[in-house]
Each structure stands twice: as C-alpha cells, then as structure tokens.
Amino acid sequence: MNGKTALNKIGKWIGGRREASLVILLLISCLLIGVMSPDFFSSTNVDTIINDIAILAIVSIAQFFVILSNGIDISVGAIIAFSGMACGMINQDHPGTPIFVIILAGLGLGLAMGAINGALVAYGKIPPIITTLGTCSIFRGSTFLLSKNTWVTAHEMTDAFKHFPRGRFLGITTLVWCALIVIVIAYVFSRYTRTGRAIYAIGGNPTAAKFVGVSESKTRFIVFLISGLLSGFAGFLWTTRYASAVNEMASGFEMQAVASCVLGGVNFAGGSGGIIGVVLGALFFGIINNALPSLYLNVFWQLFVQGLIVLIALMVNTIVDDRKARKLLAQRRVSK
C-alpha cells in the first residue's frame, strides 16, 4: 500500500467518524490555547482539567442514554442536589458511617428518583421533557425540605469524607478513577449487552424494535434508572469534591450534560451516538472553561461560550448530515 492511499484511508476515517473529528478539534484548540498560555500544558493544570470534568463526564453519560432513547432528562441536576445533600447530611449527623455506605445511599436515592421518572415516562406515557420538568421542581424542592433550608459546610464534614475524591492511586485521583470506571462500564454496556443495544433500537425506530421483540416501556424505564443511578453517584462526588452541600448545587448542570452530548455527535432524534463522543464532548467543555481566563475573557462569559459552541455543533451536525444525504442520493443515481 503506498502512502497516498493510506493517507486517503485516514482522511476517510476522519471524515466518517464524529469522534475522530472531535479529537482533531480538541488537539487544535489545545495547541492554540497552549501557544497563548504555556501554563496550559503544565501537569497541575492538566490534572485540574480532568478533575473538573470527571463529574460532568458521568452526568453526560447519564444524559447520553436518555437522549439515545429519544428522550431528555432535565431533572439530573436536581437528582445530584438531593443525593448530594443527603450524603453530606449523613456524614454530618453520623460521622462514623463508612464511606461506602454513604456511596450506596447516594446511588440508592438516585436509583429511586430515576425509577420515579422512568415509571412516569414508560408506564404513565408522559413525554420525558414534561415528566422531568415536573420532577425537577419536586426533587429540588425536596432538597430544601431535607436540609431544612440550611447547608453543610466543609468543617462539618469528616476528613475521610472530604479526602475521598482527592486520594491518589497511580498518580490519578479517586474522582478521576470513578469517572474512568463509569466510562468503561458504560462503554461495555452500550456496546456489548442486549439491553444496551435495545436502547439504540427504541431510539432509532420504536416500531421496528417492537417487531424484533424489544419492549419499549421496559427499556425506557431502564434508561431513566441508569440516568438516576449515575446522577445519584455524581451527587455524592459533587459534595465530597466541593466539600459543601448547598441546596442550589448543580442547578443548570443538566444543560451542560446535554451540551456535551450534542457536541459529542449524539443525535437528538435518538438512535445514534457513542460513549467516546460524549466523553470527548465533556473534555472539550473542560478545556474551554479552563482556558477562558487565558483567552482574556472573564469567567462570566463561560455560559455564552458554551451556548455558542453548542449552536455551532448543531449547525455542523445538520450540515454534515445534509451533505451526506445528498451525496448518497447522487451515488445511487450514478450506480443506476
């Protein structure tokens, strides 16, 4: 094989794969940012970035499965707040509770809230946006009730609790390890299990899914269970990482998670997308947020930049899809 065809092949691979173009986009932006502020590549800064996006990556994966099934979960932020607050309060009131029990509590609460969403969507047949819009207020309101409108501060938490995400193994923090484990499990689940593929099926073509025996309501229910479970876990991580549990925590975080998915090439109409893309999308947000100060924009512009990136990603998705469809039509013409 000569060099030219190899190059062609690489070009084709990049053009055909959303993930590859994202990697290139990431590399280019890293390079540009690196030129403007050399500190960017310092090991402490890289460490900061990956620690910053760990929770976002987990919640984006939660959101990914929901969007894949052609839904949306607006309540993830509220689930994080409720389970995070609960974890913080358990630690405050019963300092002797082992960490893993607290983690289980966070997971269990998330699962329960996900089950409520799932039951309403899958069996109550309420559109996901309406369901989660409603449960978003309910869960957030319940957080205030749980905390009696107070918050848990750093000095009310035990050291073991606070240090959990900061511990290091092989030079990487526990927080990042948690995210990595979630990513790997989610990847395997989405590619190598029947349930994972069923989510692709109901998102891509619910009628066809029925023909091959995939239960739409059961799968939808599972999707929200996963979303709740991961958000509950994220709640625990959030409280420990920021060493405080406030009622407003993670508000608006659902939108960031959706944004990572959009950037990662997940189709809003359901049925296509992958874990790697979503993680890259989250990584991209982490890098941009980190680099904003060195781009001479104050932190208040963060939201604006995020919105702009999502909009551009949407436009690119549409234009690429459009061109692909046209090309395919033209090819069919020629072949005939």
């Binding site: 944004a259 939201l303 909009l311």
Partner: peptide
C-alpha cells in the same frame, strides 16, 4: 436550538 440560545442570551 433553544437550549443553545438559552446559554447564549443569558451568557
């Protein structure tokens, strides 16, 4: 779309 413009306008 309005998810994106939501961030842009408030941003």
């Amino acid at each position: 779309v309005t998810l994106a413009t939501q961030s842009i306008y408030r941003g």
